[in-house]
């Protein structure tokens, strides 16, 4: 899941409450793993196509994270293909491809691909802030167990907020050290690791300085943690969100039914 890859546009999915989208992602993953036959996968495919169409996000953004996990998918496919015992289809030297192995390999590849696309849709249609707000709200029952839910959510939003700042800082320090004759792409592995010191030390110093400044600024404005803290934009459900939940309940129900009842294939 890549956070902060939000795609700006206006769609039902963008306007939807982040809690529905978070629950929806989890429900979709559950439905994917409930699927045990062609009908189950057909259901997951139809749901995915409808959601993609609703999101108004170009397909190429959905496929973005795919390249990085291509290796993982290939590995899963290869292992499932050759390691599953069952009715032999083809045998080459010591390698056997079985009917069960083939089915398992294809279904694993489909599951992983759908899983990535599904969670991509969530991060593409939800701003990081809305996402952390949603998580905080969904996890708030854990407060009974004294889990620091608000604090964790606040840390997440701050971390996300600081990514671009630290990127800029890295670029600046790199240039400053290059102006002093440093080079970051010369020599062997040890040389390169050593050349990171003039970059990393100032970067850490500045990250700590910023963290200290931010803490001070937050306290100066009366921040005292999560208790009794109100929100500027409180989350509240609209009609579309209730409809969303209903669709999710139907999705799960359909997935369970399709797994239990006997259908051809």
């Amino acid at each position: 899941m890549t956070l902060g890859q939000y795609y700006q546009t206006d769609s039902v999915l963008h306007r939807m409450d982040p809690r529905v989208k978070l629950t929806g992602t989890i429900a979709y993953i559950a439905a994917l793993f409930l699927a045990g036959n062609v009908w189950g996968y057909l259901l997951a495919t139809i749901f995915l196509i409808v959601v993609i169409a609703l999101s108004k996000v170009p397909i190429r953004f959905m496929l973005k994270g795919m390249r990085s996990i291509a290796f993982l998918i290939t590995l899963t496919v290869v292992f499932n293909l050759f390691m599953t015992p069952g009715d032999e289809l083809i045998a080459v030297w010591k390698l056997h491809i079985t009917r069960e192995g083939l089915i398992l390999a294809v279904s694993m590849a489909v599951r992983l691909t759908y899983l990535i696309i599904g969670s991509n849709i969530m991060t593409l249609t939800t701003t990081p802030n809305a996402l952390t707000d949603g998580m905080e709200s969904l996890l708030s029952p854990l407060k009974v167990l004294h889990a620091p839910v608000h604090e964790v959510a606040m840390m997440m939003s701050i971390a996300l907020r600081f990514i671009p700042i630290l990127m800029e800082e890295t670029d600046k320090i790199m240039k400053a050290q290059m102006a002093r004759g440093a080079s970051f792409d010369e020599g062997g592995l040890i040389m390169r690791a050593k050349s990171m010191v003039p970059l990393l030390v100032p970067l850490f110093v500045s990250a700590f300085r910023r963290a200290g400044d931010l803490a001070l600024a937050m306290e100066a404005r009366g921040y005292r943690g999560g208790d009794a803290r109100t929100k500027m934009k409180p989350l509240h459900y609209e009609m579309r969100d209730y409809i969303g939940y209903c669709v999710l309940v139907l999705l799960i129900a359909a997935a369970i039914v399709l797994r239990i009842i006997k259908l051809p294939f």
Binding site: K175, A176, R180, P198
Partner: peptide
């Protein structure tokens, strides 16, 4: 770069 010395803004942030 050694002949044309460049001191960035807030150069103290590059000390390490």
């Amino acid at each position: 770069r050694s002949r044309v010395g460049l001191v960035f803004q807030y150069p103290e942030h590059q000390l390490f």
